[in-house]
């Protein structure tokens, strides 16, 4: 039982990481109909910004984090200008390919600028964690769980309760109609890219103390996050969260009780199962192809 609880906690912690990155995915899918395969690299860039602010420039931890998030938002707008804007009238696929290209570019530009040495960042709290009965709770996993919860609520409120969110959703559903209604479509899309990059960057900063900061850290989590997005329901916010948590718990339990080397296989077997049995995911709606 003790082992199970420990695995459950770790699984939720890892799952929350997937969920955070998946949230960034969902946002762009909903607002701009873009599947951004550079979402993992957003996390990597964010973590490196924190390294520069905290380790190199010696700024206070929370200030560096705040500055990095702001810079990431600006970076998201630039990213939109480079990968999305020139291809916006060509449909989904060219943009997807363009984001894949951007992901390779980002990894290599960081490698070039910063070098290959992995970096260490301290966690949000000095204490490594707390012991609750038989379960050791890593303080950074706890922070990630709390941060994800806050961000989910925030994202829900923005999308469902504010005029800005409604405009963003309208833009996503039908750009032409939205612009006829007087919604500044371009601004909405740029805002979404900025927010999504800030979110991805924040995820990277939260994950950094667990995974270390390296050029490859984004790729490691982005694929799982994308799987989480499909499992939860393509473009669904609660789906991304639940999908991420499910994936984290399933692979951790699977690894422990069945086989460690096949850990990644459990995650993707689960994805396949969903694609076959419930392709719309947990929270997805059944959409038939429009004529």
């Amino acid at each position: 039982m003790a082992t199970f609880l420990q695995l459950l906690f770790t699984g939720l912690g890892i799952g929350a990481i997937y969920a955070l990155v998946a949230l960034g995915f969902v946002l762009l899918i909903r607002a701009a109909s873009v599947v951004n395969f550079a979402q993992g690299q957003f996390s990597m860039v964010g973590a490196y910004l924190l390294v520069v602010g905290f380790n190199v420039l010696g700024l206070p931890y929370y200030l560096s984090m705040f500055l990095s998030v702001v810079l990431m938002a600006g970076f998201g707008v630039l990213f939109a200008g480079a990968t999305y804007w020139p291809l916006r009238h060509r449909g989904g696929l060219p943009v997807i390919i363009s984001t894949i290209g951007a992901s390779i570019f980002l990894e290599n530009i960081v490698l070039f600028l910063y070098g290959p040495s992995p970096e260490v960042l301290p966690g949000l709290f000095d204490s490594p964690g707390i012991q609750v009965g038989p379960v050791f709770m890593d303080s950074q996993y706890l922070s990630i769980l709390v941060a994800s919860t806050i961000l989910v609520i925030l994202q829900y409120l923005i999308f469902e309760k504010t005029l800005l969110g409604k405009k963003l959703q309208a833009t996503s559903q039908d750009k032409e109609m939205a612009s006829l209604l007087g919604i500044p479509v371009v601004a909405m899309i740029l805002i979404t890219f900025g927010y999504s990059a800030a979110l991805g960057g924040l995820a990277g900063m939260l994950v950094a103390p667990v995974l270390f900061v390296s050029v490859g850290m984004g790729g490691l989590i982005a694929l799982k996050a994308f799987a989480a997005n499909i499992i939860g329901g393509y473009g669904s916010i609660p789906g991304a969260i639940l999908g991420g948590l499910l994936l984290g718990v399933a692979e951790t339990l699977g690894a422990s009780y069945i086989s460690v080397p096949y850990k990644d296989a459990f995650a993707f077997a689960m994805l396949l199962m969903f694609l076959m049995v419930r392709p719309q995911g947990l929270f997805g709606e059944k959409i038939s192809e429009k004529a």
Binding site: T3, T10, V210, I221, T252, S256, P261
Partner: peptide, 20 residues
Amino acid sequence: VQGYTNQQADFTPVVLAVKS
């Protein structure tokens, strides 16, 4: 004898196997 695949985000299952 516990194998793991390279580039893991989490080693809790391996550590728990060692512990037990």
